[in-house]
Design a protein around this nucleic acid. Structure first.
Lengths: 195, 195, 195, 195
DNA sequence: GATGAATGAGTCTTCATTCAT
DNA sequence: GATGAATGAAGACTCATTCAT
């Protein structure tokens, strides 16, 4: 009907299939059938099978980018933890509410990992300098954080979640990253390495 | 010796290729060439392309299983933390020293995740009951742990590591999981949620 | 004026493309773009891709026909050689000055050859009967003549030529057909077949 | 049966089809059907549709080359005319006896023309210097010769010819090239240009 | 057991032609 | 008449798997 709609229809169909079957097992036929278009029409809007996939990925990355705001420190700014909480909530909401997108992003966005990890690492370094974060290896820690978040999304995006649930998940993840799992009532374990 | 070797040769070649190219982009030709066998010979040892891949995965899972020992609590047992440390070290060593295996495992072992996460979850529940671990959501936390470990392996298996390095990585990951990132000198942040 | 122009525009564009790319490598898109028309418009003026090509060929054949005048013998007629010279000059001029047309004609006008050769053959027979032409096999000779002319046009239509140049080429071709290449100072070679 | 045979079978089938339908209208199916092979088998022997075609063309050019021997002048050498006659006879025999090859060569060997014409031109220049050939424009004349030969082959390769017939054709072509068509009893026409 | 030539189902992509607006 | 989005038949090429030797 509307011109823009055709492209959107195809994209919508493609996202669904790609997220279920992955890139390789998705056939052009799998896309055009639910999109209700002819084979040739597909190639009117996309040059390659690869191109539509990359196009989807790109859109995702842009949306993801919009979820993440730089954490700024200042007296008129919310507490860094709350800024972080906001970022996490937005990302989780995007990916858990659009599980297809989430799966595609998590499984195929090679190269994205390192970029994100690097950003986290920088934040950690700043946190250490500011005394908010304990002395740690920021590189290794950044991969721990990123991995944890990815895994939680991967798992929890399988079933739809409401806002409250997402908030609870975010809170738990935050808590994990900040306090770890040790019972705070106990003394540090770490004198016992060689026993 | 001879018979067994053929199968091993093929497996070895396949592991290398699968880990580099992934399942889909690996051709039978890619496997038989470095394995120095004829095309038909491949099918004497494996029924399908899929089967050799699953076979590799299975071997990996067995090896992985052997790395992980149930954590037992008792006065004649090492501190649970040290048992955990041992498990982690063995897993990291296996996967970082065999990066090909590691990559295959991490990228393709769908379904493994949930199983492992479930094991972790159980351990967490026990830890909570024993007072070693703070009150937390054990399911979410287990995914945080698992994801963190996976991401660290994925990243650090790209370059060979020595024992000392592996130990350091393990220590950092442990520390992250146990203490989190908060500077212990600070009071808990978590009163400030709504600011 | 307008209506006719559309068709002419398309034809002009098509001639250029066909002569450069040949029939098979020419796409409808290649034609409609320089013709500044929509895809559907093309099919208002031509039924098929093949039809526009044939149409071009037909126009060419008509033009070619107009170049060639029957050679008439009579005391009030120019010498047959000059009539022939006139024909050749007109044909060469047409095709060398319109290299696109020339190329299309030479490469694709299957079936034209035999018709033209037949005309030449008839002329040769007449010439023999009149004593102007030596006893020869008129069929074979007609193909020699036709082929020579075609090859010369094919080659020399690659670069624009002026009237003087065309005249010179015509003269040389005529000379070749009439006198052959033998140095007239020599006796006939043809006693030496078996040496 | 024999290993070499498969490739030959495919080539033979391809030559037949290509010569009838030309490159573009020949489908892989057209080739594999008479060759009695499966679709995939074709690609075992040739990389592309284009490659088998080029391969055929190349073989042709080699065979053609073997037909043509440099004309050498010397008292212990046959008369140049007879050497020329030999070349022509061999070329005509090859192409007329293998009409499929002939058609492919004539229609598709772009670039061959100019090379051959150049060889002829050189021979003509030598002949002029030696006084065997009259003063003429050797470039234009070479195209006349080449074109004549091509056209005769094109036409006469449509029907099988015996040795005697080929000899007769060669003789007529030679005669045409050497003596032209003028009745030798007449004086030169070429004083009458402007009448 | 070993071989590797042969198979053919399956996939992407192209492009002449149509047709609703 | 004009448009250009839509169509789908058709073709080149791939590659896991088979099988005769």
């Amino acid at each position: 009907m509307l011109k823009k709609n055709r492209r959107e229809d195809i994209l919508k169909a493609a996202i669904g299939i790609f997220s279920q079957k992955g890139y390789h097992d998705t056939r052009i036929s799998d896309i055009i059938k639910p999109a209700n278009i002819a084979r040739g029409t597909f190639y009117l809007y996309f040059d390659h099978k690869r191109q539509i996939f990359d196009s989807i990925l790109n859109t995702l990355l842009v949306e993801l980018d919009q979820c993440i705001k730089n954490i700024e420190v200042g007296k008129d700014r919310p507490h860094p933890l709350n800024q972080l909480r906001g970022n996490l909530t937005r990302v989780f909401t995007l990916l858990i509410e659009n599980p297809d997108l989430g799966r595609i992003l998590l499984r195929h966005a090679t190269g994205l990992d390192d970029r994100v990890a690097y950003t986290i690492e920088d934040a950690l370094k700043l946190g250490i300098k500011m005394g908010l974060i304990r002395e740690c290896n920021p590189k290794i820690s950044s991969y721990c954080i990123l991995g944890g978040i990815k895994e939680v999304i991967e798992h929890f995006s399988l079933t739809k979640k409401g806002t409250a649930e997402i908030d609870a998940i975010v809170e738990e993840v935050l808590n994990f990253g900040i306090h770890g799992l040790k019972n705070p009532a106990l003394p540090s374990y770490f004198t016992q390495k060689n026993k």
